[in-house]
Structures are given as C-alpha cells and as structure tokens.
C-alpha cells in the first residue's frame, strides 16, 4: 500500500514539478540575458502575462500549441519594446519602467480577457506530450521527466545554446561587455545600445514563451494572475545563477517541485494546510539566497543607463 502511494506521489510530484519549472527556466534564461547586458528587467512578469494571454488566444483560435507559444513570445517581445525604448534609449529608470510594464500588462490582459471571455471562460484541451522512447518507460521518474510537451525539451536546448552563445560568439561577448563596461564596448567599436536592445528583446520573447507555456500547457486556460509571480521567481533564478546558466535549470527544478508539492500531497490524501506547503518555495528561495547570495554576481553596469556623453 505504502509503495503504491509513494509511486503515485513521486510521479505526480515530478511531472507537476517539471510543468511548473519549465516557464521558470524560460523566464530565468531571458532575465539572465537581459541582466548580462545591464538591464534589470522587472517587467518580466508583465511580459509573461502578455505571453500567457496572447498565447491563449492564439491557441484557442488556431488549435496549435506551437503557434500559441510563438505568439506568446511575440507578445512578450512587444512589451519588451517599451523597456527598450524607455530604458535603453531614453535612459529612464529601469525599476520604475519595469514595475509599470508589469502593472500595465496585468491590467490590460485582465481587461481584454473580461471583454472577450468573461461569459464563456473557455479551456484548452490538454496539451499533447512527447514521450522519449525507452527513457519514458523508466518506472516512477520516466513519465514525469520524459513524457512532457516538447517545449520542455526545447528550453533545455535553449539553455545549452545560450551557454555556447555567451562563450563563443561575438554578440554573446558584446552582451557581457554591455553589462560590465559599456564604454569599453563602444570604444572597441561595438554599440552598447543596440546590444542591449537585442538582449532585452530576447528576454521579452523568452518570457512571453514561458508565460504561454503556463497558460497552454500548465493551466490550460487564462485567468488574471495565472502566472502567479513566475516572472519574479525568474528574476531570482537569474540572480542566483551568477552567469552559470545551468543553475537556472537546477533552481527552477527545485522550486517547481516544491510548487507541485501541494497537489501531490493532496493526491495521497495527506492533510497538511495548503498555505503552509505553498510557503515552501519562497522559504527555499530566501534560504538559498541567504546561503549563496553573497557570491551572487551582478554585472557592474546593471541598472545604469548607457549615456554616451556622461563619462
């Protein structure tokens, strides 16, 4: 009896954990790229909400999850253009604009949602999964880890790609330079503003895809607040990663599992107050920040607008 329970419990914990973790990886990766270039993107949550809504509408009307993820990415990118225009080109305060974008995107999507779907509250069919042969047959962990929507594996490929990109490409190095020594980048013939633009737009696209992943694959619907702070957690992950992108995956996995603990515990009928369980991920984050926070690496020019004339 107990081992049936624990199998059910573990399987649900793992697959729920992966579903919660994937959007965090998208968001954390995007934020890491943006922060590397010197832009603290507090609008990440707003970009995720925009992605969640646009992706939901796109999938609802087209029936295609991939199309929804793409449209979600575009929506996140559109929100990030405000950040580019105001913070990269007009030197506005990144924190103020970030908060504004999060508030604005949350409000606008809630208004649009109520205008279109407040009567019907449509749901999406369950997203299909890609079962990896052999691996998905492993007992207990197989289904959770290797039988997920293909977007799950895509994000891991993206993380690996980004690691290579930062190490080995000119644009990757430019992004790092724009975050640490933008004046040096300019002196070397680069363009800090253009570099930051690319980085922030990439972050917007990734956050948008992450938000769409929540709505399309995690929740199967859009309601205001569906992202539930995933953007903020993404920012934390990016800061914790200290430039080592695999840490984002590890951190997201840990937080994802603790997020899915509520459902898993309910599934086996353990009666622990939900609120206490839901405190876990945030408690975990604070403890991790406390232990590893000292080493957290932030680019030297983070949050500072690049001003060619101010030297």
């Amino acid at each position: 009896m107990t081992d049936i329970l624990s199998t059910v419990f573990l399987a649900s914990l793992l697959s729920g954990g992966v579903i919660s973790a994937v959007p965090l990886i998208y968001a954390g990766l995007g934020e890491a790229i943006s922060e590397r270039s010197g832009v603290l993107n507090l609008g990440l949550e707003g970009m995720m909400v925009a992605g969640a809504y646009a992706g939901f509408v796109a999938t609802l009307n087209s029936g295609s999850i991939w199309f929804g993820l793409f449209v979600g990415g575009i929506a996140g990118l559109v929100v990030s253009l405000f950040m580019v225009g105001l913070c990269v080109y007009l030197n506005a305060d990144q924190i103020v604009v970030g908060i504004a974008l999060t508030l604005g995107a949350t409000g606008v999507t809630a208004l649009l949602h109520s205008a279109q779907y407040s009567k019907s509250y449509p749901r999406l069919p369950k997203a299909g999964v890609l079962s990896i042969p052999l691996l998905s047959k492993i007992p207990v962990v197989g289904v959770g880890l290797f039988s997920q929507h293909a977007s799950t594996y895509l994000v891991l490929v993206l993380v690996a790609g980004a690691m290579w990109f930062f190490r080995s490409t000119r644009i990757g190095l430019n992004i790092k330079a724009a975050g640490d020594q933008p004046h040096a980048l300019e002196a070397a013939g680069g363009n800090p503003r253009r570099t930051r633009t690319v980085a922030v737009m990439t972050a917007g696209f990734l956050a948008g895809v992450g938000g769409a992943h929540i709505a399309l694959i995690g929740a199967g619907l859009f309601v205001p607040g569906v992202t539930n702070g995933a953007g903020d957690i993404g920012i934390v992950l990016a800061m914790l990663a200290r430039g080592k992108l695999w840490w984002i995956v590890a951190g997201a996995g840990l937080i994802g599992v603790s997020l899915s603990l509520t459902t898993a515990l309910q599934l086996i009928g353990l009666n622990i107050p939900i609120d206490a369980v839901q405190m876990l991920p945030f408690l975990l984050i604070i403890v991790v920040l406390f232990i590893f926070g000292r080493d957290s690496y932030l680019p030297a020019a983070l949050c500072l607008p690049y001003d060619r004339e101010a030297r």
Binding site: L86, L90, A92, A100, G104, T106
Partner: peptide, 16 residues
C-alpha cells in the same frame, strides 16, 4: 483592473 492600467500609463509617461 482599469485603475491599474492608468497607474502604469502614468509611470511610463513619467519616464518620457
């Protein structure tokens, strides 16, 4: 949420 949107717009225009 409309009030929230107004506040966000104010912040963006403040930046400009």
């Amino acid at each position: 949420y409309f009030v929230v949107v107004l506040v966000a717009l104010m912040l963006l225009f403040l930046a400009v």
